[in-house]
Amino acid sequence: MQLRDRRFLLIGGTGGIGRELIGQLLAEGARLLVATRNPESARLPEGVAGVKLDLAADDLDRQLLAITETWPDLYGVIHCAGQNQFSAIQQSSVSDIDGQLAVNLRSAMLVARHFVPMFTALDGGALVFVGSTFGSIGYPGYTAYCATKFGLRGLTEALRRELADTPVDVIYVAPRATRTAMNPNAVDQLNQALGNAMDPPQQVAANIVRAMNRDQRRCFIGWPERLFVVLNAVLPRLVDRAIIKQLPVIRRYLNSGVSS
């Protein structure tokens, strides 16, 4: 898709990946509107506007309507927001689970619900959703997060097929572990102990922009993670065995008390 001179709403633009996306999208000539809960305190580059958006709010649909009434020239939306928690399921509070459901999945569904008719009427537009490798591979310590990201992947797949006869693009990008402040120390230590690669956020942002430029419908970032995604779909027992071997190490950090 063409990025130059088109305005995108970036949801989650104050996180590690989102901050990198701002600079890279501007370099492509895109115009940006960054949604955050506290736009007045967000440090945004000159020429980038901020708007208030609370993804967990009951009135999210009305907030989205207010944005598009003010900014009717939006061409696309990049949903890059997310919450996660590294904990055993029995240690997850109801509010933790509800928060991940609201931010990671419900908000994405409401974004699609709001923008699909708008983009269809405008004869074109783009919906870009940033998921996770854990949206294809269930992983210990991330049951709620995986459930929401599996749901997000399913949403994009169904939506893409539903809109196949329209000019609306649906793009799903799934990063592997990324080195951002969202990860607690226990997760960084776990990835180091297991030898898992962690990508810098600027590299992930570059992959997202590349997927947009190429109209790449699905983009899974990282090797061998892309292989594991395929194996998990066709031979899940192989992935079961690999993760079971890791389980003692995972439990060590899961129960370390550093994860929250």
Rank of each mutant, 00 (worst) to 15 (best):
T133S: 02
F86Q: 02
G16T: 09
R226Y: 03
Q100P: 08
N38F: 08
L53P: 06
E225K: 00
P201E: 05
L227N: 01
I208F: 03
I97Q: 11
A112C: 15
Q24M: 01
Q85T: 09
E225I: 00
R214K: 14
G131R: 07
L53V: 04
Q192C: 05
R251G: 03
G195E: 11
L53I: 01
G124N: 10
V249H: 10
G138H: 13
R217E: 13
Q83M: 05
Y139V: 03
A108S: 14
L127G: 03
F220N: 08
I221S: 01
T70Y: 06
M198R: 12
A164Q: 15
R113I: 11
R226Q: 10
Y142R: 07
I208C: 01
R161Q: 14
D61T: 14
E157R: 13
R160Y: 09
C219S: 12
G99E: 09
A88P: 11
D188A: 10
G50W: 11
D73N: 12
L65M: 09
T70E: 15
R161H: 14
L60W: 13
G18L: 04
E162K: 09
T166Q: 12
P200I: 11
E28A: 09
A147C: 11
A197P: 06
P72Y: 08
L55W: 08
V173A: 02
R106K: 14
L10G: 00
Y139R: 03
R106Y: 09
R217L: 07
K52G: 02
R226M: 03
M182H: 02
G124I: 12
L9M: 04
V77M: 04
Q202R: 12
R210G: 05
R237I: 11
V168K: 08
E40I: 05
G135D: 04
P236W: 08
D54R: 06
T143I: 13
W223I: 02
C219R: 14
G76L: 10
V48S: 01
S260Y: 15
S41H: 14
P248C: 03
T156N: 08
F220D: 10
T148A: 04
Q203S: 06
G222P: 10
V258D: 13
I11M: 02
A30H: 11
Q83D: 04
L25C: 01
L190T: 04
P236C: 04
Q24E: 10
D123Q: 15
I244H: 13
P224L: 00
R153E: 13
R31V: 07
V130S: 01
L110K: 15
N232H: 07
R62M: 11
Q246N: 10
G12M: 08
E28D: 09
T70H: 14
